[in-house]
């Protein structure tokens, strides 16, 4: 049985690099959409306890936006894309061409957020698919804005069947002084992690 804790430095480097390529593609897509220069930092790959993840997002009760996808194909599992409230506002603000990024999210923004999640996750999956040669298909996104703890319970439960830890990829995008912190959870089903690593040439 595969365990997230068994990942070594080489594995993490490879996942970070995929994150980097994926986020790079995503930032380019976003920059094209809003006609602005977007800066990106090298993503961080972390293996964390569930409670630490909630802390990164400001505690279990802080409101966050989660966008969730089903992955089908040669590898099955899920992807979750998480944004804290301020990042959600900055991202939708950028997309809608607003001057002020403090506006509360309305129905249009929610829809925009789903689409951004779709673009970012799609970029990530397509780089993963190109690098591994595996066929990966992403479902339509499902958005939920609620308490961080409640949203995190979804990937936590999925990881919970095999491990007490989760694999998180944190990407930072920046437009001037406006920082967007995007968190990805890669949640492959039990044996899919192995297939992924094997096809990336870091496991046998």
């Amino acid at each position: 049985m595969f365990n997230v804790e068994d990942l070594n430095h080489l594995h993490l480097d490879v996942l970070r690099e995929i994150g980097n390529i994926g986020a790079g593609n995503a930032a380019t897509a976003l920059a094209l959409m809003i006609h602005k220069k977007i800066d990106m930092e090298v993503p961080m790959v972390k293996i964390l306890e569930f409670e630490e993840v909630a802390k990164i997002l400001g505690g279990e009760e802080s409101v966050v936006a989660g966008i969730y996808f089903d992955v089908q194909g040669d590898v099955t599992g899920n992807i979750m894309f998480l944004l804290d409230t301020s990042s959600s506002k900055v991202l939708t603000g950028m997309l809608m061409g607003r001057e002020d990024y403090s506006k509360e999210l309305d129905e249009m923004d929610r829809s925009a957020l789903q689409e951004i999640g779709n673009i970012l996750s799609g970029s990530y999956i397509s780089s993963l698919s190109t690098l591994t040669g595996l066929n990966l298909v992403l479902s339509v996104p499902s958005l939920c804005i609620d308490m961080a703890g409640a949203i995190l319970s979804v990937p936590a439960i999925q990881f919970g069947q095999v491990s007490d830890k989760v694999l998180l990829i944190e990407t930072k995008l920046q437009d001037g002084n406006n920082l967007v912190k995007a968190n990805f959870f890669l949640i492959p089903n039990a044996d899919s992690f192995r297939i992924l690593l094997k096809n990336l040439g870091v496991d046998n």
Binding site: A54, D146, M147, G149, A150, L152, V154
Partner: peptide, 17 residues
């Protein structure tokens, strides 16, 4: 956790749990 009055037990952000 287990305790008794006057204490209060709390758990934050239950989702599917």
């Amino acid at each position: 956790k287990v305790t008794k009055s006057p204490k209060v037990l709390t758990t934050l952000g239950l989702g599917s749990c």
